[in-house]
Design a protein around this nucleic acid. Sequence first.
RNA 1: CGGGGCGUAGCGCAGUCAGGUAGCGCACCAGCUUUGGGAGCUGGGGGUCCCCGGUUCAAAUCCGGGCGCCCCGACCA
Length: 486
Amino acid sequence: MSADNEITPQSQDFSAWYNDVVQHAELADHSPVRGCMVIRPYAYRIWELMRDALDEQFKHTGHENAYFPLFMPQESLDREAEHVEGFSPETAMVTEAGGSELEEPLAVRPTSEAVIWPIVADWIQSYRDLPVKLNQWANVVRWEMRTRPFLRTTEFLWQEGHTAHATAEEAEEEARTMLGVYRDFMEDWMAMPVVTGLKTDAERFAGAERTYACEAMMKDDKALQAGTSHFLGQNFAKAFDVRFQSEEGEHEYVHNTSWGVSTRLIGGLIMSHGDDQGLVLPPKLAPHQVVIVPIWSDAEEKDLVMTVAQRVNRVLSRSVRVHVDDREHVSPGAKFYEWERKGVPLRIEVGPKEVSSQELVTVRRYAPEGRERKRTYGEGKAIAMVPQVLEEIQDDLLQAAEERREERSVRGMEDYDEFRQHIGEKRGFVYSGWCGDGECEEKAREESKGTIRVIPDPEFRSEDAPSTCLVCGDEATEEVLWAQAY
RNA sequence: CGGGGCGUAGCGCAGUCAGGUAGCGCACCAGCUUUGGGAGCUGGGGGUCCCCGGUUCAAAUCCGGGCGCCCCGACCA
């Protein structure tokens, strides 16, 4: 009676598990072009929910959406020295179009600083035109060596915020604010706790003064960089001549920021909560928050059961996203497995038994120890409780992820050899001191599997500040977070 | 780009060593019986066997060349 579980267990091969979930939860499909991916409707709906939530926050913090072109002259990309050095190896170029070779090659945006600022420069004359706070929802292309669905694809969807300010302080505040927006979204909507902080020079965005990031721990104890926010200083303003006349009449360069999150977040969602049965979705981002599975054995039963199912559906639809799975020739058991594989947070079963007892069976996709997964309530109570149950599931997921992360974090590590072994075998997060020297960072990168993910923000730092550098043993100037990275 | 593996139905594979009608499981379609944790039976549809060339009466199979994909590494906001 039982079909083989087509999903590889996480403990056996996490990477195979991930690919199986992507495939069997119908999230993505392959493309004939290497590294490109089809986002299937179920995953696209998750992306829409993410997009809507983020977009509202962007507007709330004073940003306007716009859309800039996919192509730019190659020359634009070349203008900021560090930017071009960082991005040109992975930039796709169009050299031929319309049946003939182009006089100047066109670059397909890997990010849009070099598309936006040459144009927006002309929108800014005076300090009164500032700040400019733009966002765009777009696709970008980066020719990566090695790709994985959602986590790193040749083309991906994202949002990129681009702002210009009169002062460095204001731009810095903007970069920090948006990092906070990301963090709140990841915790409140994705139930994915993150450590925020500053990137080291080695990991900084090409062309930025400072890069801030959100780092999340996946279920295989590796770190995923889930979002970044950059204080760009005046590097791009100088490269693209973005100036304004100040109140004092001086011509000054603006101070910029940029910040982005991508469809990589869907990968983060999968690896934060998924289990051997498949995807587990936090209710706030679930395309179907509740699925109703009617159970019948003949036409008469079907009528009775469907009457109740539709009634429950009508009432619930007012407050939650609910789906009635009334497919004829799929057995209830098969439906249960399918919706579990797809991560639907709550299932309601209605069969002849429930019809006669005026009850409903509710089953949670995720329930921590000590909480019942399956419960039967009177119809009215079951319906009334749904919003609360969904909130509980949302909270349970965040709490479980937080607990996992803390269990898998080690603070105050001082022995370099212990570190190398720990980060290679046990993975997880390791907090240590660092002297601030890029050579120590590079040495550890070469000799261990770990890299510095961030210099954590104050609230994530250890109570006792580490005093020595993990690598060289000299005096520490910073506390840093190490992990194996995706 | 280095090391390894693989290209046969939508998916997973056998067949290749030893040339001779294109197969299996799942999925799909039809009908009947089913439906409380992945239904059963019967019937059916679906193929440039990655591509090009060669050998041969005959090539998925042998030979030569090419292309693509996957894994490990290098690379990577």
